[in-house]
């Protein structure tokens, strides 16, 4: 009889990432970069961390990546406590991290080599991902001869090829010029949609946040806290691939205005 009752209980999904009461203190507690921050990520959602500089959004991302440790709090990936970095959380940095001593192809392969993916499968996946980031013609090119956007595409392919549960991006397009940045944003939306990934992206660019994200977490500074948690409902649960379409949607201008106002409040 118990079995029947069990069937009726709703399926509780375990979030891909759960951050509970994270604090990060420096200088023996006199400076709080993060103060009691809690949130859960939703599966297959893109979350943008937005806030003024010095608000702790980078610290939060690095804590999720395991590159920094919180003073207090707990971090769970699919319900499991995590300590330190791991391939379940792939990271894309603002600085170009495609290794200059490896060709584009070897770079993409490198992450899978670490995970000991068999050679045949590795090669196939590498070519696949190089195609997805439109670099198949540059497979044997060293990063030195690639443009900034291409280097970042190599890093993106390398991270995606490792198939991490969560992808963390620290201002990944911050060093790119406006047009390349826009191309990369479109490519990223396309790839994330295809690969079904949970993403956290830091950006200081409000327009970029609205374009990329399904949800925006706005951080306030000193101490770093979540000031607002904004689901981007005006998109109607879709991801808009064309920027022109996004700009025309009702609600876009209002949201952008609100975010600018929040930013101004913080800067004061």
């Amino acid at each position: 009889m118990n079995i029947v009752a069990k069937d009726f209980t709703p399926v509780t999904t375990v979030p891909p990432l759960k951050a509970s009461r994270i604090s990060k203190e420096y200088l023996g507690g006199t400076f709080k970069a993060l103060d009691d921050v809690s949130f859960e990520l939703q599966e297959n959602q893109i979350t943008a961390f937005v806030g003024p500089s010095g608000c702790g959004k980078t610290t939060m991302l690095r804590i999720i990546a395991g590159l920094e440790y919180p003073t207090r709090g707990r971090l769970e990936v699919f319900g499991k406590n995590v300590q330190g970095p791991g391939p379940d959380r792939g990271m894309i940095f603002q600085a170009y991290t495609s290794f200059p001593w490896l060709t584009a192809m070897q770079n993409v392969e490198y992450g899978m080599k670490i995970l000991k993916v068999p050679a045949a499968e590795r090669r196939e996946r590498t070519m696949n991902f190089l195609k997805l980031v439109h670099l198949e013609k540059f497979a044997d090119t060293y990063p030195r001869s690639l443009s900034g956007g291409m280097k970042q595409r190599v890093a993106l392919a390398r991270t995606l090829a490792q198939n991490p549960a969560i992808i963390l991006m620290d201002e990944p397009f911050g060093a790119l010029d406006a047009q390349v940045r826009w191309e990369m944003q479109e490519l990223m939306i396309e790839l994330i949609e295809r690969e079904k990934k949970t993403v956290v992206a830091i950006t200081h660019d409000i327009e970029e946040a609205i374009y990329l994200a399904d949800r925006i977490i706005f951080f306030s500074r000193q101490p770093g806290r979540i000031k607002a948690d904004i689901p981007l409902t005006f998109k109607g649960g879709r991801r808009i691939k064309q920027k022109e379409e996004l700009l025309e949607m009702p609600g876009y201008a209002e949201l952008e205005r609100q975010l600018f106002a929040m930013m101004r409040e913080e800067i004061k």
Partner: peptide, 26 residues
């Protein structure tokens, strides 16, 4: 570049792999 080592860490590389596969060639 410190991000080379950090990229290795987030890819799940061991310390010896990071040393011989990333730090040395860099």
């Amino acid at each position: 570049q410190k991000e080379f080592v950090e990229a290795g860490l987030t890819m799940g590389a061991s310390r010896s792999t990071i040393l011989t596969g990333i730090v040395v060639p860099a």
